[in-house]
Design a protein around this nucleic acid. Structure first.
Lengths: 123, 123
DNA sequence: ACCTACGCTTACGTGCACGTCAACGGTAGT
DNA sequence: ACTACCGTTGACGTGCACGTAAGCGTAGGT
C-alpha cells in the first residue's frame, strides 16, 4: 500500500510540482525513504480533501486548516470551541455556494431556453 | 436609476479598483459622462453575476464568456450549438461542486461530532 | 557503456486578480 | 482662496498557486 509521487500524480491528474508544493505547505506528509517520497493511504485521503477544497475555490492555507481538523486532537476546550466555530463558518460558506449554484443553474436554464427557441426559429 | 462607481462599490462591498478592473475586462460597460463612469441597472445585474461566479471560483475570463451569453444574440446556428455545449459544461461543473459540497458537509458533520464528544468528555 | 525513466533540490518565471501609490481634474462648502 | 471629497488614468507591486528550467543522483534495460 505505497505510492510514488508519480503514481499519485497520475491517479489524481496533478503535476509532480503540485504534489511537492502541497507537501511544502504541510498538506501532505509523505514518508522519506532516503530522499525519495513514499506516499501512504493517509496522503491519498488528504490529497482528495485538498483537491475537493481546491475545486470549491478555497485557498490552500484555509484548506490546510480544515484538513488538519481531521487529525488534530485539540484536547483543550478553547481549541474545541474555536474548531466548532470554524466549522460553522465553513458550513455557512458552503450553504452560500449552494445558493449561488442554484441561481446560476436557473440562469443557465433561461439562457438555454432562449437558445433553443432561437434554434427552432431558424427552421 | 443611475449609480456612481462608489455607490456600486459600497452596495456590493468591493473596491473601486475591482470595478474598474471588471470594466477593463469587459464585464461591465458603464456609460461615460465625460470621463466619469455612470452605471445603470444592467451593470448592477452584471456585477451580481460576476460576484456570484467569483464566489464559485470561476476565473474572470470564463465569467466574461458566461455573462456575455446573456447578452449575445448569436443568431448563427454554429454559435447557438456552441453556446448550448458551453452551458452543458458549466452545468457539469456546478453538479460536481454540489457533490463536493455534500461530501465536505458530511466530513464536517463527522468532525463536529467528534468535537462535541470530546467536549462532553471534558466534563 | 549508454540511454531512458524516475527521483531530488534550488530558484527564478508566470498568470491572475486585484492593491497601492502617484499625479491629476472637477465641484461643493466655508 | 482653501479644504474636502469625488472622479480619472497610468503603472508598478503583491499574494497565491503553481510552471519551468537547471543541475544532479540512481536504477534498470540493450
Amino acid at each position: 500500500m505505497e505510492w510514488s509521487i508519480r503514481d499519485l500524480a497520475r491517479e489524481y491528474d496533478v503535476t509532480l510540482r503540485t504534489i511537492r508544493h502541497y507537501e511544502a505547505l504541510g498538506l501532505l506528509t509523505p514518508e522519506r525513504r532516503g530522499q525519495t517520497r513514499v506516499f501512504h493511504n493517509r496522503d491519498r485521503i488528504r490529497l482528495e480533501l485538498v483537491l475537493r477544497g481546491r475545486r470549491l475555490g478555497f485557498p490552500l492555507d484555509e484548506i490546510a486548516r480544515i484538513v488538519n481538523m481531521y487529525d488534530d486532537r485539540p484536547g483543550e476546550e478553547g481549541q474545541l470551541r474555536y474548531l466548532l466555530d470554524q466549522i460553522g463558518v465553513r458550513r455557512a460558506e458552503l450553504a452560500r455556494m449552494r445558493e449561488d449554484i442554484s441561481r446560476t443553474e436557473a440562469d443557465l436554464d433561461a439562457v438555454e431556453a432562449r437558445c433553443r427557441e432561437e434554434l427552432d426559429r431558424l427552421r
